[in-house]
Lab assay of single mutants.
Amino acid sequence: TTEYTFTDDEEARRAIEELKKRGLTFRYEKHGTTWRVRVD
């Protein structure tokens, strides 16, 4: 499991789109302004 942290909404959304394109399994949660994206 790899975890990424983003504080920029645009950056987080781009990363999420990219992961979807690659067909990877991931989860994300947003805490205030911080996004945590975990890739299995």
Rank of each mutant, 00 (worst) to 15 (best):
Asp9Asn: 06
Ala15Thr: 10
Glu18Ile: 11
Val39Leu: 07
Glu18Trp: 14
Thr33Met: 09
Leu24Val: 12
Val39Trp: 04
Glu10Ser: 09
Thr25Ser: 13
Trp35Leu: 05
Thr34Phe: 12
His31Met: 12
Val39His: 02
Glu17Ile: 11
Phe6Ser: 01
Lys20Phe: 11
Trp35Phe: 04
Thr2Gly: 06
Arg14Leu: 10
Arg13Gly: 06
Val37Trp: 01
Arg13Ala: 09
Thr5Met: 10
Arg22Gly: 05
Arg36Val: 15
Thr25Leu: 11
Leu19Thr: 01
Phe6Pro: 01
Val39Phe: 05
Glu17Thr: 08
Thr25Glu: 09
Lys20Gly: 06
Arg27Trp: 15
Thr33Tyr: 07
Arg27Asp: 09
Arg22Asn: 08
Val37Asn: 00
Phe26Ile: 12
His31Gln: 12
Asp40Pro: 09
His31Ser: 11
Ala15Gly: 04
Glu17Phe: 08
Arg38Met: 15
Gly23Glu: 03
His31Trp: 08
Tyr28Asn: 00
Trp35Thr: 10
Val39Thr: 03
Val37Met: 02
Asp9Gln: 07
Ala12Tyr: 07
Ile16Ala: 01
Trp35Glu: 02
Lys21Cys: 12
Thr25Cys: 14
Ala12Met: 13
Thr34Tyr: 11
Arg13Ser: 06
Asp9Trp: 15
Phe26Gly: 02
Lys20Val: 11
Glu3Phe: 13
Thr5Phe: 14
Thr1Arg: 09
Arg13Met: 14
Thr25His: 14
Leu24Glu: 05
Asp8Met: 04
Phe6Trp: 03
Ala12Ser: 02
Leu24Ser: 05
Leu24Pro: 01
Thr7Gly: 06
Ile16Leu: 06
Lys20Thr: 10
Glu17Ser: 09
Tyr28Ser: 05
Ile16Thr: 02
Tyr4Leu: 09
Glu10Val: 10
Phe26Met: 03
Arg36Pro: 02
Asp9Glu: 13
Glu29Trp: 15
Ile16Gln: 00
Tyr28Thr: 08
Gly23Asn: 05
Lys30Arg: 09
Gly32Met: 03
Thr34Cys: 15
Gly23Gln: 04
Arg27His: 14
Lys20Tyr: 10
Arg27Tyr: 14
Arg36Phe: 15
Glu10Ala: 11
Thr5Gln: 07
Ala12Gly: 04
Asp8Trp: 03
Glu18Leu: 10
Arg14Ser: 08
Glu18Asp: 10
Asp9Val: 10
Trp35Pro: 01
Ala15His: 08
Lys30Thr: 04
Lys20His: 08
Glu29Gln: 06
Glu3His: 08
Gly32Glu: 06
Thr33Glu: 13
Lys30Val: 08
Glu11Arg: 05
Ile16Phe: 05
Asp8Lys: 05
Arg13Thr: 08
Arg38Ala: 11
Thr2Asn: 06
Arg14Asn: 10
Asp8His: 05
Tyr4Gly: 01
Thr5Asp: 04
Arg22Met: 13
Lys30His: 05
Glu17Ala: 12
Gly23His: 05
Ala12Pro: 00
Tyr28Lys: 03
Thr2Ile: 14
His31Glu: 13
Lys21Asp: 05
Asp9Pro: 13
Ile16Trp: 02
Leu19Gln: 00
Leu19Tyr: 06
Thr7His: 11
Gly32Leu: 03
Arg36Trp: 15
Arg13Asn: 07
Glu29Arg: 06
Arg14Gln: 11
Thr33Asn: 14
His31Asn: 13
Phe26Arg: 00
Ala15Asp: 01
Arg36Ala: 04
